[in-house]
Write a protein that binds this DNA or RNA. Structure first.
Lengths: 243, 243
DNA sequence: AGTGATACAAGTATAATACAAGTGTGCGAA
DNA sequence: TTCGCACACTTGTATTATACTTGTATCACT
C-alpha cells in the first residue's frame, strides 16, 4: 500500500508548510522520481489528498495546496462566546458592581456626560476568569438598563442605537493587586489592557470600555488588509508611542 | 508562473514611485528585454495590473500609471518613522545580527523555507530604544539583501514583490533578560509582543517578524470599521484565547 | 487490488512571429 | 507659420510552436 504511505508523507509536508499555500506542488513526474514510484501510485496518493480537500489540481497546470491550513485555524473568528462554545467551554459573565458614578476624565472626554453608568464584571470560560471588563455608558442609555439585563445580554443588543464601529487601543501592563486576584494570576504578571470607544453609525461615541486579559491566556489577531502603510522594517502599523 | 512574478515586481516599482503618476512605463518590448520574457508574458502581467486599476494603456501610446494608483489612505497613521520625525525625534535602526539560520518551527510553517535570513535589530527614537525586532526572510529573498541595505531601507522596499497585507498577533509578556537589557527596562516588566506575517498580493507569506515593545512606551490603535462582530459585552473583537 | 510502464489526449504557460491600428515627431511643401 | 505625410514606435490581436502539466486508458506482472 505504497500510495497510502506517500499520501501521508505528502500531507505531512503540506501541513508542515513545505509547499506554501496556493503554490504548486512538484509535478507528478518529479514526485514519482523522488519517491521512486510510478505515476499511477503518485496520482492515487494525490487524489486521496484531493478528496480530503487538502490539495487540488487543474489539468495542464499542476497540483497546488487547496487552502492554507495554517490560516484556517486562525481564520475568521466570531465572538469570543461563539468561539468558546465551539470548543465546548461554558461562557459566563459575573457582575461585580453596577451603578452610576462620576465619569473619569478620559471617559468624560469621549462621552461628554459627567454622570455615567459603570458596570464592572468578570468574564469566565469554563469557570476560569479570562477577562476583567469595565463598561461606561452615558446616563441617557444607562437609565434604562437593569443589572439583570446587563448580565443576560451583550451591551450592543441593549443599546437603542445602531453601532457603527469602534476604536480600540491595546497595551500591556502589569496586573494590579485587584485584577490579579480577580483573574487568579500573580500580582505584577503581564496583562493585555484594551481600551475601546464604541461609536454609532454617526460616529458618536456611545460606549467606553476597558478590558484586561491575562497575557498567558489571550492574544489579539489583527488583519491589515492593504499594506500601504506596512513597513515590516519599522513597526506594526497602528502602533503609537506614548509620552 | 513568470507573469505573476513580473506583475508583482512591476506593481512594487509603481507603488515605490519609480514611475511617476501619469508617466509612461517602459514599453512592452523594453520590459520583455529587461525581464528576459516574451511580450506575451509581459502583457499578461500588465493586463493583470490594469485589471487591478493600477496602470492603464492606450494603443499606440503606451502604458502609464493610472490616474489614482489606488494610493490608499496612507493618511491615517503614517509609519512610525514619519510620526517620529513629525515630532522632531530622530529614528534609528541598530542591527544586532544578520545571517542565515535554520527556521524556527512557526516561521517554517508560514514561509515554507527551512533556511531563512534572520535580522535582529533595535529601533530607537531619540536614542531611546522602543522596539526589539526580529525579521525572518525566505532564503530566495534573503540572498539578495545586504546588511547595509537592511539598515538603510525598510524591508518592504527591498523585497522584489508587492506586499498585500499582513496578519498580526498581539500579546503581552514579561520582558526576558535579553530584551530587558536591550530595551533598558527591568527584567519581567510587561512588554507588548507582536508577531506579524506579511504576505504579498497573492496572499503568499513573504515575511515573518516579531516585535517587542516596552509597555510603558507603546500601545496599538485598531480601527474596527464595521461592527458586525462587535460585542462590547464580551471582548474586543479579534481577541483569541490561547491554550 | 496494487503497482509499473507506456501511450495519448487535453490544458497551460511561454516564446516567436506577424500584422493591424493608434500616437507622436520631424520634415518638407504650400 | 501651418498643413500634410511619411516614419518610427507604440499597443492590440492573432497564429504557430514548444515544453510541460494533468487526465485517462491500456496492458502486464505480482
Amino acid at each position: 500500500m505504497r500510495y497510502k504511505e506517500i499520501a501521508g508523507d505528502v500531507q505531512r509536508r503540506v501541513e508542515a508548510g513545505e509547499f506554501a499555500a496556493g503554490r504548486l506542488l512538484p509535478s507528478e513526474a518529479e514526485l514519482a522520481r523522488a519517491y521512486d514510484a510510478s505515476r499511477v501510485t503518485i496520482r492515487k496518493a494525490l487524489e486521496e489528498l484531493r478528496h480530503d480537500g487538502l490539495v487540488d489540481a487543474r489539468q495542464g497546470f499542476g497540483w497546488f495546496v487547496a487552502a492554507d491550513p495554517v490560516r484556517q485555524t486562525l481564520g475568521r473568528l466570531g465572538t469570543i462566546e461563539a468561539q468558546l462554545e465551539a470548543t465546548g467551554a461554558v461562557a459566563e459573565r459575573r457582575i461585580l458592581d453596577f451603578g452610576f458614578v462620576k465619569a473619569p476624565r478620559r471617559v468624560r472626554l469621549h462621552l461628554g456626560d459627567d454622570q455615567v453608568l459603570r458596570v464592572r464584571r468578570i468574564n469566565l470560560a469554563d469557570n476560569e476568569p479570562f477577562a476583567r471588563v469595565t463598561v461606561w455608558v452615558p446616563e441617557r442609555f444607562g437609565r434604562v438598563l437593569s443589572r439583570d439585563a446587563v448580565s443576560a445580554q451583550p451591551f450592543y443588543e441593549l443599546l437603542p442605537v445602531a453601532l457603527g464601529g469602534a476604536t480600540q487601543t491595546i497595551g500591556a501592563a502589569a496586573a494590579s493587586a485587584e485584577d490579579a486576584e480577580l483573574l487568579a494570576i500573580p500580582v505584577g504578571s503581564p496583562v493585555l489592557r484594551c481600551e475601546r470607544v464604541t461609536h454609532d453609525t454617526e460616529r458618536q461615541p456611545v460606549l467606553v470600555s476597558e478590558h484586561v486579559f491575562p497575557a498567558h491566556r489571550s492574544e489579539f489577531v489583527v488583519e491589515l488588509p492593504n499594506v500601504e502603510v506596512d513597513d515590516a522594517s519599522i513597526a506594526p502599523s497602528g502602533l503609537r508611542l506614548v509620552d
